[in-house]
Design a binder for these strands. Structure first.
Lengths: 250, 250
DNA sequence: TTTAATTCGATCAAAAATAATCATAAAAAA
DNA sequence: TTTTTTATGATTATTTTTGATCGAATTAAA
């Protein structure tokens, strides 16, 4: 019985009971207590479990895992429907930008098993995709705590170094006149990502279509595809401006 | 029977059983154990299987290496004592590097109320300092999921753009001969941060002092201050090399 | 607090597995 | 063909793994 196999067994028992005693393990695996003790020490050093006097505990019950949480829970159904449709366009081998909005965040759940590269400035996105098939490239720069995202000059320069096949971006408002953002930061970031992408998707639920906001940062020429649940004849206005509209129903 | 044929057979058996013993393989393929051993070594080097003592395992069966959160569970008392001492040296206005090791992570709790800038490649550090007085600059680049940190060429270039007054770094081992790391990534990162800092602190609990590891990546000239709980006359050896040793008791 | 019982870490020894060395056989190159 | 290189197996030295033992440290009980 090799160390690797014992480690497996130990983790299995740990998962089952939450905690285990050395005597119990020694009997179960059929090795001496000294060996079990050595195994536990090694595994604790590798962070696979938490060592206690006389045994071990599951790590999750001792230390809280790292987690960035995306709080924005508004209009989730619509956002999920939009993102599901958008995800259908993502194929293996794609390199995509995902911005730090609450809409684009919902995209994560649909792309976990795709073999793609994701470039993002959003900490919740990184956290969500950490244990997935996706390769993550995180934009560097100053961290904005309220948005849980990276912004600033360094960040935009970082974005400019990469080239993606698709960008999935949210906006604060979109009309035939152009794109609106809620802050300079958001605008700069959206713009930087869009400029480095072959195909720009705007993910935008119905509330924001036809609405303006604080800052108009670009006209519609930046956009290739608009994914929305806004089912209204007006969408033809966008199409005449050269934008493909993907309508979804909630 | 050529190597290629044997390799195929070995992978086949591995797929079937998940693990194999050398004796078993030698009998099955009808070659000596020495040859099997050589085959396994070669195949392991190419990442086709995981070598164990006495045999081999399927890669997927092997327990994932160091997950970062967990490693924080080892020797916490010593690490906290070390970090508390180190934090006493940090003053308002400082710009500091914090690396992605489990020791340096413990520093966060002591600096939350300081008016400083922290530059880091560690996601847990970012998470821990998100709601604090600290301004965070996150290194950008490829995300290493197991370490929950950012690494790669882009990351090291990002580091080179900044200049800090102090760097707080962990190592896998330190002797009078030099500094040791557990991987190329860790070494590159530590080195990059150290080179951009006016004063380099090595945070190192007693277990790692006097110990060597996988990779020696630099001599001691890189280091200015060693903070450790290693209370032994031998520390004078480091001091003769020009390093200030800050000893703490647990 | 003191005492007794565990548990731990260090050291040692035996067994197994590995790495290193060498000689031979097979294959490739000259 | 001869020479050189490569692959294999045998042999020996080294390393790793495991279990036993004992003093020190830790926990639980009195």
């Amino acid at each position: 019985m090799t160390f690797q196999k014992r480690a497996y067994k130990i983790l299995e028992l740990l998962e089952k009971f939450g905690e285990v005693e050395i005597r119990q393990l020694a009997a179960e695996i059929n090795v001496s207590e000294v060996t079990v003790r050595r195994d536990l020490t090694a595994m604790a050093a590798n962070g696979l479990l938490y060592r206690t006097h006389g045994g071990a505990m599951k790590i999750s019950e001792v230390i809280k895992p790292v987690s960035f949480v995306n709080k924005a829970g508004v209009n989730i159904k619509a956002k999920d429907a939009i993102c599901k449709r958008a995800a259908a366009d993502i194929i293996d081998g794609d390199v995509i930008f995902i911005d730090c909005g609450s809409t684009a965040f919902r995209l994560c759940q649909f792309i976990k098993n795709k073999k793609i590269k994701v470039i993002t400035n959003s900490l919740p996105v990184v956290n969500e995709l950490l244990d997935s098939a996706v390769t993550i490239n995180l934009i560097g720069g100053e961290v904005d705590a309220t948005r849980q995202a990276v912004h600033g000059t360094t960040a935009y320069e970082h974005i400019a170094r990469y080239r993606a096949s698709k960008a999935f971006l949210g906006v604060d408002g979109i009309t035939v006149e152009g794109l609106y953002a809620g802050s300079e930061h958001e605008a700069s970031n959206t713009l930087a990502m869009a400029l480095q992408s072959d195909c720009v998707y705007i993910l935008c639920d119905a509330r924001k279509v036809g609405k303006t906001s604080y800052l108009k940062f670009n006209d519609l020429s930046l956009v290739n595809i608009l994914v929305t649940d806004y089912n209204n004849p007006d969408v033809t206005e966008f199409e005449t401006k050269g934008i493909s509209v993907l309508s979804v129903t909630v």
